[in-house]
Design a protein around this nucleic acid. Structure first.
Lengths: 133, 133
DNA sequence: AATTTTTTGCTATAATATATCTAATTCTAA
DNA sequence: TTAGAATTAGATATATTATAGCAAAAAATT
């Protein structure tokens, strides 16, 4: 529950943050800021895109959610902060969770690793099937 | 040698492309388009940033170089197209090559993987040392 | 050498994201 | 319960990265 965590982390609870938290909670679609904004706007049309960006950044900085980069020029956000990887379909552009919990590798003194991100690119089942027709 | 490959791939050889190829050849710094532009500009100040972008995209699309995304909002380019990973220093922002040649995993029919990208984030030796002072 | 095709460079525009600033809201504590 | 301090929201200007469009130039072909 993101809303609960917001308070724990010292952020004030506002209707906007509550709403953004609800949009993110359990969300497996890895939405961009724009995606979140669209969803939020449907419920509360007056919420500003700036607020969405600020909230997403705050939550990501606090480690409540995860910022994800798959090379499409925009950040995606994932409420699942447990270690897992992602698969990006080059056709439909959807991002899927992969339960490969690759451990942080040990590169010795040379590099102290604090975060790892594995992204796989290819074609999801549906898009493979489409091409065969 | 990138210049050689340019011709093989059916692209015309121009002074601009030759220069961009030379800047990239053996380059281990993972430059952004802007970085490449700056280097090129020092030698040939009239080369346009648009040409740099177009050339980098062409080369990446042809698989001559690799487009790399580490989540800093801009694309980086790597002339080393052999399988390897990258380490990003969160302090100095440099990108280092990691010779971990993780093989493409097999996710079965569900996902057909064609490319994998592993990025590790942390602190390089130099930046670790700095903090200890 | 002329022609076709590609490429360049300029610039406008797009897309994503952040900064700034005032008004409004939240929360605390009296 | 409310006054006041601190934070947040919203509007918008601006920054940053990248692409699009087009005329002029250059490259390769014939």
């Amino acid at each position: 529950m993101i809303v609960k965590t917001i308070k724990d982390k010292g952020l004030k609870i506002t209707p906007q943050r509550q709403l953004i938290g609800e949009v993110l909670d359990g969300n497996k679609t890895h939405p961009s800021a724009e995606d979140v904004y669209k969803k939020v706007s449907k419920i509360a049309p007056t919420v500003s895109i700036a607020t969405v960006y600020k909230t997403l950044n705050s939550l990501a900085d606090l480690g409540v959610i995860q910022r994800l980069d798959v090379g499409d020029g925009k950040a995606h956000f994932d409420p699942d902060i447990t270690p897992h990887s992602h698969f990006v379909c080059l056709n439909c552009k959807r991002i899927f969770d992969i339960s490969t919990s690759a451990p942080l590798p040990d590169f010795g003194e040379e590099f102290r690793v604090v975060k790892a991100q594995a992204v796989y690119y290819g074609y999801c089942k549906e898009c493979q099937d489409q091409k065969e027709e």
